[in-house]
Every structure is written in structure tokens, then in C-alpha cells.
Simulated scan of single mutants.
Amino acid sequence: MLVNERLIQKINHMVETFNISVEIHIEAKCPLNRNIGGKYNAGEQSITLYLEEIQSQCGWMFPGEDVFVEYASVIFAHEAGHATDPYLQKLVELYDATEDEFKRKKIELLVEVQAWKIASALVHDLPDDFFNKIKRISLEHHYKAVSQGFKDEGVA
């Protein structure tokens, strides 16, 4: 079975098992010229995966390992986490109503942590250390931004 067929099979299994109601798009490259592996679009109720970025990230994090399908399924699970987060809409509304940049960074972090929490249940068949490494690296810049905000506020 080809790699993309295995990935589609894995994604379809997650969609069916967890009753995820989104359109799924798979594209070669992110049109935003950003190194993101996936994107959830709440307005369209869709998840788009970007294969070139996923391949690049996977090769960087797990050099020499044949884990593309597993890595891509974690990225999909994270985006599905956004799609199924019961608090996402309220957090987006709070974010939009907040002008304070530090508070916005904390809300962004909360949105991402929520998606990762949900994602962990979707890929429970993968090793924890594999999942947690991807999650840690993904959240790193959000934690740094919030940490910097605490320093700016004179708290830390």
C-alpha cells in the first residue's frame, strides 16, 4: 500500500471512530508560504493537510525514521482537536474581544493546548514519546510568547 493510501486509511479510521464531521483536503504545499502541516478552517468546517511541510517537519524531527504516516496522523489529529473542541468558538470570541496582546497570547496557547489534549485521544495507538515530542515542539513558541509576556509584565 502506498504511503498516501495508508495516510488516507488512517485518517478515515479516525474520522469514523470519533465521528469527526469535517471536509478533508490534502494539498502538496501550504499556499501561505508557512511551515505548517495542517490548518483547520472553522468557517468551512474543513481540515487541510500540507504534505510537503509535513514531510519536512517529519524529516527534521525524526531523521532517518519511516514515520511519515504516523506523523501526518498526529498533525491531522491536532487539527481535528480544533474541529471538535467544544470551547473553541468561545475562545475565539474572547480572543477577538481582547485588545491586550499578552492576554491574546495566553488565549492562543489555551486554544493549542486544548487541541493537543483532544488529539491525544485520537492517536492513542501511537507511542506517547512520539506524540509528546511533536506536541512539545508545536507548543514551544506559544509557551515562549506567554513566558516573555510574564517577563514584560514584571511577573517572572
Results as ranks from 00 to 15, higher is better:
Y50C: 11
L7T: 01
V123F: 03
L139S: 12
A145L: 14
D128G: 03
S21E: 10
V123C: 15
A28P: 00
Y71W: 02
S73R: 10
P127D: 15
T98G: 05
H124L: 11
V146C: 10
L110V: 05
D100E: 10
D128W: 07
A42E: 06
I118K: 15
A42D: 07
N12G: 14
L51E: 06
I137P: 01
V67W: 01
S21M: 11
R6F: 00
N41Q: 06
D125V: 04
E99F: 04
D66Q: 11
M14F: 02
Q45E: 13
L139D: 06
Y143S: 00
D85T: 07
Q114H: 14
L126A: 02
E52T: 13
H124R: 11
K90Q: 12
Y143W: 11
C58K: 01
A121N: 10
K29A: 04
L126S: 04
A115K: 05
K105Q: 12
L2T: 09
E53S: 12
Y143T: 01
R6P: 00
I54S: 05
V3R: 11
K133S: 03
V123S: 02
D125N: 11
K10A: 11
A97F: 04
K135S: 05
R104L: 02
V146Y: 07
A145Y: 02
R136K: 15
E140F: 15
A119K: 03
K103L: 14
K144S: 14
D66M: 07
E101F: 07
K106R: 11
I11Q: 14
S56I: 03
L122W: 00
I11S: 09
L49F: 12
T98R: 08
K144H: 14
A83L: 03
Y40W: 12
M61H: 05
I24P: 09
E101N: 09
T98L: 08
E79T: 09
G59F: 00
I137Y: 07
Q45V: 03
K105C: 05
K106T: 08
K39S: 08
V123G: 00
G38V: 05
V69Q: 01
L88C: 10
W116N: 00
P127N: 11
A145V: 05
I54M: 10
Y50A: 06
I137H: 06
L32D: 08
Q55S: 14
L51R: 14
S138I: 01
A115D: 02
E70T: 02
I11C: 11
G64H: 06
N35Q: 09
I118H: 12
V67Q: 02
W60T: 08
G43K: 13
E27Y: 00
N19P: 00
V123W: 01
